[in-house]
Amino acid sequence: MGIISRGFGGRRRESVPGLPPGQYLTHDFPVLSAGPTPRIPLDRWRFTITTETGEKTSWNWAEFQALPAEDVTVDIHCVTKWSKLGTTWRGVSLDTLLENVESAADYTMVHSFGGYTTNVPMEDLLDGKAWVAYKFDGEDLQPEHGGPARLVVPHLYFWKSAKWVNGLQLMPEDEPGFWEAAGYHMYGDPWHEQRYQGD
């Protein structure tokens, strides 16, 4: 028997409204990580959007903090089967970040400090569906949860909500990120249980 959890023990599904198939409810906030937690000083933090033609739009921490922020309450669903309902975040909408970016790209690759990547279609980042969040539950986002800032794209499994985010590469074609290349689903819709490739 290996140490990889099969859904962390395959707990019984609870019939809770808002809980996608195969998920169980948790009230704490599990920390999952594929590597060391990067500690990013705010004076070295930068978020850069790079278009398919190489044009860059970039914000340092002070510029990013000056952007209009939103408070959102969303449910989050981890592919390891825990879900946490009603989480509160403060961050900048991707609609705001992409507002003045000229691009025809249909796909994006999210990049993080530490080298993590994950792919998200452009349409899943727009129309109030995604944020770069820097506060959780009213407090500064802690490094183990992705601080200073992480992507929050709650309608997809939470591995798409990259921690320690530092950029977005806009792409004409879809490409796998870190977990997608390792066997996880390219899209990751929790309501359709798109956990692994081929699901």
């Binding site: 140490i3 990889i4 920390v31 999952l32 990580s33 594929a34 590597g35 060391p36 981890c78 592919v79 390891t80 591995w159 977990w179 390792a182 066997g183 996880y184």
Partner: peptide, 16 residues
């Protein structure tokens, strides 16, 4: 070996 994640991630101890 990073195991508290959606899979096992084995990193080089020299370069990570």
């Amino acid at each position: 070996l990073w195991h508290q994640s959606p899979g096992l991630v084995a990193r080089c101890p020299n370069c990570e």
